[in-house]
């Protein structure tokens, strides 16, 4: 079962990641698939907290701005996210931060994004393949040490 409908994932993802300049476009489908897999592999409470925080953000938006989060528009969404995030209330802050963990990870983990930022995992792996280290050491027995 999906954690959230794709539509909801889309507007939350777009607000949290905010399409960085000169980097590949957000890919809602593949990133949502990753988030599902990541949440499934983790603690059940984490998934529950993720869903609750996303829904809570919507509720907060209605309470504070009189509109659901998706209807706030890009400016309004950014304003709300930052307001909550900058709050000294740890609950309010936590509620905004937690979904961000999954959304930001889903984007910046993509190899084409990471490579443009200078982290080319495939190249590093290929280099590591050429420099495999072997242990070959004659072991001192414990008796020699003590």
């Amino acid at each position: 079962m999906r954690s959230l409908p794709r539509g909801q994932m889309r507007w939350l993802m777009e607000a949290y990641i905010a399409q960085p300049r000169d980097l590949p476009s957000i890919d809602v489908d593949s990133q949502s698939d990753f988030i599902e897999e990541y949440l499934k592999a983790g603690a059940p409470e984490f998934r529950l907290a993720f869903i609750s925080c996303c829904l809570g953000l919507n509720l907060l938006s209605v309470l504070m701005k009189g509109k659901t989060f998706s209807r706030l528009g890009a400016e309004g969404q950014q304003e709300l996210l930052n307001k909550c995030f900058n709050s000294r209330n740890p609950l309010l802050r936590g509620m905004t931060v937690l979904p961000g963990l999954a959304f930001l990870m889903s984007y910046y983990r993509r190899p084409e994004v990471a490579a443009l930022l200078g982290f080319d995992a495939a190249a590093l792996k290929a280099e590591a393949e050429l420099r495999k280290v072997s242990r070959d050491r004659t072991l001192p027995s414990r008796g020699d040490a003590s």
């Binding site: 949290y16 960085p20 995030f85 930001l104 984007y107 910046y108």
Partner: peptide, 21 residues
Amino acid sequence: PPEIHALALPLLGRRSAEAMT
């Protein structure tokens, strides 16, 4: 790596995107 760095930055949304570049 970037995916963990983005989580460590105390920023969200546009401000995070700007910083991550």
